[in-house]
């Protein structure tokens, strides 16, 4: 159908084990520098493959918006404090050996649990590891189909 797909050069399937899962707090970066969390098979912006990784597990973020959910599904804490946070991409790039500043385009955000409901939009938060964000198997999702550990975000002095 199309002969534009030659940039990848080989006939091997590109297996993305873990890449699509969002298991780790890792941004995936395509050959044109578009970064996403979680990763995708092709870059949502340009369609190229996402071949580079940027660790975000120690990167601070800013609260874009937040909510406290009181009607939670099976296996989820109640109340459940949730936020969309935006990572300090420059700080993540600075901490990484693999990128130079300005070569990666964001924003990169995540939805995540908060350690507290005592926050405001604009607050600075940091990821803190939690072994089980939600009880595997309590809800409808097949427990083995995904991970259940991850990061909550807690307010820090900016």
């Amino acid at each position: 159908m199309s002969d534009h797909d030659s940039t990848h050069g080989d006939d091997e399937p590109r297996i993305r084990e873990g890449h699509l899962s969002g298991d780790d707090l890792t941004a995936y970066v395509c050959t044109n520098g578009h970064a996403t969390f979680p990763g995708h098979q092709r870059c949502p912006t340009c369609g190229e493959s996402q071949d580079a990784e940027l660790d975000l597990s120690e990167t601070r973020a800013e609260v874009v918006t937040w909510t406290t959910s009181t009607a939670t599904p099976p296996g989820v804490r109640e109340p459940n404090h949730l936020a969309i946070v935006e990572f300090d991409l420059d700080a993540a790039l600075e901490a990484s050996q693999d990128f130079t500043a300005g070569t990666v385009q964001g924003p990169v955000r995540t939805l995540a649990q908060l350690t507290t409901g005592d926050v405001e939009s604009g607050d600075v938060v940091a990821p803190t590891y939690v072994e089980e964000l939600r009880e595997p198997g309590a809800g409808i999702r097949e427990p083995d189909s995904q991970s259940w550990d991850g990061y909550r975000f807690e307010p820090v002095e900016s």
């Binding site: 899962s21 969002g22 298991d23 969390f37 979680p38 959910s69 009607a71 939670t72 599904p73 296996g75 989820v76 804490r77 459940n80 949730l82 995540t110 939805l111 995540a112 649990q113 964000l133 939600r134 809800g139 999702r141 189909s145 995904q146 991970s147 259940w148 550990d149 991850g150």
Partner: peptide, 9 residues
Amino acid sequence: PAEYKHGVT
């Protein structure tokens, strides 16, 4: 999965 594990609805 990255959303579901946080208990989002």
